[in-house]
Nucleic acid binder design. Structure first.
Lengths: 182, 182
DNA sequence: TGGATCAGTGGACAATCTGCCCAGTGAGTC
DNA sequence: GACTCACTGGGCAGATTGTCCACTGATCCA
């Protein structure tokens, strides 16, 4: 039994887990705009039945499109006003894992990616001041397996992290699907 | 019962807007773990009165520590499985602003920072495939004022974006405050 | 020292929302 | 044509919310 009926009719198989329609997008947009809204209120605003909204939400959560409603905490409001991106070179013998592990133990390290290119890891860190950033970087360098680091400081953030434009784009263009005409 | 006796006593003026105490941290942690929890349930779990939780939440929101409860959308679940970091060099004459503006119009650009170092801007972008990434980068290059770009692809994300460790760290160490003994 | 201020408690209220159930309709599938 | 599925509109009991209140302790200040 396939639980995605008429939708799967129009939607190519390989996309069906990763596509949302206009109503989904509007729902996400609405929740993004007024996060503490209840299901009932959403249904009113969207002009659909409550059950529909409830079902849509459940599905979005089940599919992993919406991963949660965690409180968005601003590091800046906690005094961590300095953001920096630190790229690391590591000793390859050790592998990425132990290093990532070590980095994860530093609270100021908010995010770690392994990357292509000249470096091995890219992480986003915050600190209270530039001087404090030095302390954090020192901690990073102290992680076993880290050979050297290179940092750039984020001076400003003209576009803060956002996903909405993407969400609104998907149902319209099917997320630009897979290349049709190269 | 003195739950939070000396808070304002010990906390230096300049920090009080950016400091949270243990209860705040536990509240944020709780909400992060089970986002859809109500105020009442939180108060039960934390062992405090409902009014207290309500007041704390209001204050955290008012101070901007918690900026919202937006639904966390996973670009990957929408089919955008490729993440890349693109650094841009821009034509200085134009200034950052118009470029940021242009970038903001591209849905796949999730985040833009102005940075120190050899480049001018750093942005996080997503795409559906590596080929699709090329399309996005082309759009970026097309933005007026962009001179050249350089991209690295995120292969893996051993530490996804998180703030909790930071939140839990603040009340314990006062966020390492301002440098005491240099 | 006394008064003011503030955070927290415990209780109460009406209004609202939630989770869950149901039967019916229309659209698309096999 | 039979079937499946999303959606609708409704109903229900139970829980939660927003908002009051009076009272307690602790801190701050003149």
């Amino acid at each position: 039994m396939d639980n995605l009926p008429s939708e799967s009719a129009k939607t190519p198989e390989f996309l069906y887990t990763m596509t949302i329609d206009d109503l989904d997008a509007r729902l996400i947009g609405l929740l993004a705009a007024e996060p503490r809204l209840g299901v009932l209120e959403c249904s009113r605003r969207l002009g659909v039945a409550r059950g529909t909204v409830q079902a849509r939400l459940d599905r979005l959560l089940a599919r992993g499109v919406i991963t949660g409603f965690g409180p968005d905490v601003s590091p800046a409001a906690l005094g961590y006003t300095v953001t920096a991106f630190v790229t690391l070179e590591i000793r390859q013998e050790a592998g990425h894992d132990p290093v990532s592990h070590g980095l994860a133990r530093i609270p100021e390290v908010l995010e770690v990616h392994t990357i292509t290119g000249g470096s091995d890891l890219l992480c986003r860190v915050v600190a209270r001041t530039n001087a404090d950033l030095q302390r954090v970087i020192d901690q990073i360098v102290d992680v076993r397996g880290v050979r050297r680091t290179s940092s750039v400081i984020a001076l400003d953030t003209p576009v803060p992290y956002r996903v909405l434009p993407l969400v609104e784009d998907v149902p319209r263009h099917g997320g630009h699907q897979y290349v049709r005409s190269p």
